[in-house]
Amino acid sequence: MSEMWTAKLRTKWQKELPIEKLLPDDQPAYVASWIYVFGVLTLSALAMIIASGIVLAFEGPAWYHTSDAGKFTNSMHFWSVQLFFVFMVIHLWGKFWMAAWRGNRFRTWATGAVAFISSIATAFTGYLVQTNFDSQWISFEAKDGFNSMGVGAFFNVTNLGQMLLLHVAFLPLILGVLTVVHVLMVRKRGVVPPIDAEPALSNRGPQ
């Protein structure tokens, strides 16, 4: 076998996550439950957030605060975030109560948990960059909290430029990478079975 890193990476990828696992055309019978729908609903809401966010970034606040299309897109961005969190929290409840870290799925659980935390930071900076009185009030309330934690010098919530760049560049990048890794981990390990359905399968580990 070639010693090149590309060949090693390809071999490892094909072994760990073959295309049949990456793009499956069937799922175990236990996946036919509404509780298994909320992961993909969260992804759908995230896709709407990113799409509407890109439009908002190109057009700017003078457009999204004044024109009808701008207000609509702004609302689409906001309400997609609300649905994103609703779906994600119900997904979290479902996975918590079925102990979804079973079967060597700790990394799937951990990337989801960190993605949840980073999405809170992304949403928070979103509230700070609305460029309206709401964002002004939120930032001035929040600054005391951040200063009391001793991070005010690094994370200045009243600095619109810093919050805007964190919201549109750094945090979406972190959240995007975590989401991709999370989904790849789900595809690699498979969807977790219910606790009482197949105990042997749930403890089998990587498949």
């Binding site: 055309d25 069937d26 175990p28 036919a32 439950s33 509404w34 119900i90 409840w93 479902g94």
Partner: peptide
């Protein structure tokens, strides 16, 4: 919504399994 998702039956389509 969580309770409904757990208890409502999922519609049966074609079953590949």
């Amino acid at each position: 919504t969580f309770a409904l998702a757990v208890f409502l039956p999922f519609p049966k389509g074609h079953d590949d399994t």
